[in-house]
Design a protein around this nucleic acid. Sequence first.
DNA 1: TTGAAAGCGCTAACAA
DNA 2: TTGTTAGCGCTTTCAA
Lengths: 347, 347
Amino acid sequence: MSRSPSTPPTLEDVARVAGVSRATVSRVVNGTRNVDRKIQEVVRAAIDEVGYAPNRAARSLVTKRAGTIALVVSGAGEPGEEGAFASRVLSDPFFGRVASGVLGFLRTRGVHPVLMVSDTERAREDVLAFLRQGSADGALLVSTHAEDPLPARLVDAGLPAALFARPARPMPISYVDLDHQAGAKLAADRLVGRGCRQVATISGPLDVPASQDRLTGFRDAVARHGSPYVPIAEGGFTAGSGEAAMERLLAEHPGVDGVFAANDLMAQGALAVLHKHGRRVPEDVALIGFDDSGPALTCRPRLTTVRQPVEDMAAEMARLLLDHVDDPASPPRSVIFEPALVVRESA
Amino acid sequence: MSRSPSTPPTLEDVARVAGVSRATVSRVVNGTRNVDRKIQEVVRAAIDEVGYAPNRAARSLVTKRAGTIALVVSGAGEPGEEGAFASRVLSDPFFGRVASGVLGFLRTRGVHPVLMVSDTERAREDVLAFLRQGSADGALLVSTHAEDPLPARLVDAGLPAALFARPARPMPISYVDLDHQAGAKLAADRLVGRGCRQVATISGPLDVPASQDRLTGFRDAVARHGSPYVPIAEGGFTAGSGEAAMERLLAEHPGVDGVFAANDLMAQGALAVLHKHGRRVPEDVALIGFDDSGPALTCRPRLTTVRQPVEDMAAEMARLLLDHVDDPASPPRSVIFEPALVVRESA
DNA sequence: TTGAAAGCGCTAACAA
DNA sequence: TTGTTAGCGCTTTCAA
């Protein structure tokens, strides 16, 4: 133990105590070979004695690595909603799963994520500046908005980045994604397979590629079963929008007996409306969600849903980014994951 | 516009283009007075021309400020559950609101939060190391666990920190908290006021101070209305634990007609059980939650609940931390917020 | 008001 | 295998 110095111990201090040079201490701290066993021990003892911790800023300055990446939630806040975007997105269990997957992977690599929200032009500039400053070595982007200009800006600036979903416009950037069409097909097959004769879907925002794919996949699969027409109501991935969509569907197609909602939150909203109208689920109307997030389990009946391996996808996204940071010359890569149907009570 | 150099522009580059010294450029970048107007303009033009962004590592090295803080979600993961803790907590809408409040405040101060989870001894060491390295200027702690050793470790190490809730054991550390007893009283008064004659409560984990306070506050208030005995079932702040607790309550006290759940998630679970047993809410059993989080709104009936101003509290916590970072000699402070009853349909 | 110069703590050649 | 030394890019005295 030692008195608490006014200033933290440096390599120099350790070197002095151990009776070696700074370089040698640096070598043992960084695990470089070519250091005598005995000296290693002496140095390690000295490190403990003075309570040394390497200064990150100094290290970053020479290695040109921040050891952090930006985890950006990007989207378009309604003008003037002032932080509501952040609150909404961060409270979405889907984002929690993403963060958790990222954290799990990064933890093994000594890299830390800085949380950022980019819902305004100003915020976007902040993200860019943060990266240009070298405060983070790259960015992980979870977009909630198709027209998000951030990915392109990142590419243009030559900053390492990886996306959680295929960008709306093709661009040279790494991403992970789900085979949404396959997921929608799983739902369609289940609904038709259990005897539904009039299926409909509550889609996500149609300017989002994932929503498009889920819709297309669902339509195609249903068509293959012989029904060319599928009523659709567009939602916004929130429970409230799911309610509104279900109301519309019921009004225009009272005979609907099977519904595929493009995410669990909307399915949850639909469920409430179905209850309100006295339709039993799944007896009168079978309902399938998408994501397998927390709400799918708290619903009654519990939601049959299409599971995205979100944590795995997030971890892979982090891996893609770090690989790119390590080798900036490597070409962008994309990894597509397969969904699975989780059968519970709603269908 | 300029060609993209292999290495980012530095102060030196700007200085050369502007025809001044590094020091002068530094002064205009940092907004120091005592720089001739004309020179300022020249320098600014040069900055734009070369696309300069100050290197954070270099700046941190001399200012001894990282410009980032750690946002730590701390708790005890079940041994071997491997990341499940992170997933659970980060998916909790409550944490989303905290993050959002923190982000909102930090955004105005140019500080960024690094997301960390500390659910193991190893992870706790990482947090401490991160701070000692100077990677972050302080820590914001959201604990889910009463026996969390991290706050004390932070205090011992003399590292700046602020907590989201009063620590289980008194210690010299800043925190924000809610007047939980007042919140519970709001719930009790509402329940008794609407005519409930046999009220019960689903508490949070009783080793958590907030749970204790909510329980005590509820009991006291109910006692003041003339009923000295309040059945209680302990839960774990999850929907599943709320279900189990409600089952127990119903089994032991079938006549219960008013329930106060210590958070919305448990209330949601209780609601499902109540439905299952054919009890109408609020006609047969009135139900009140706590937090006013997303699920309170997606429930049917919508939950009457005690609202915590979580975002405001989180912002204040961030303020307390930054104040302490700016003036390490200042004593710890605590700020207590007042809850409000949000009346909806369940009670 | 401006410039020169001394570090901040570390890594990585290069020498020994 | 170890030590010497030259920076990394920035802020900040101190002189001018």
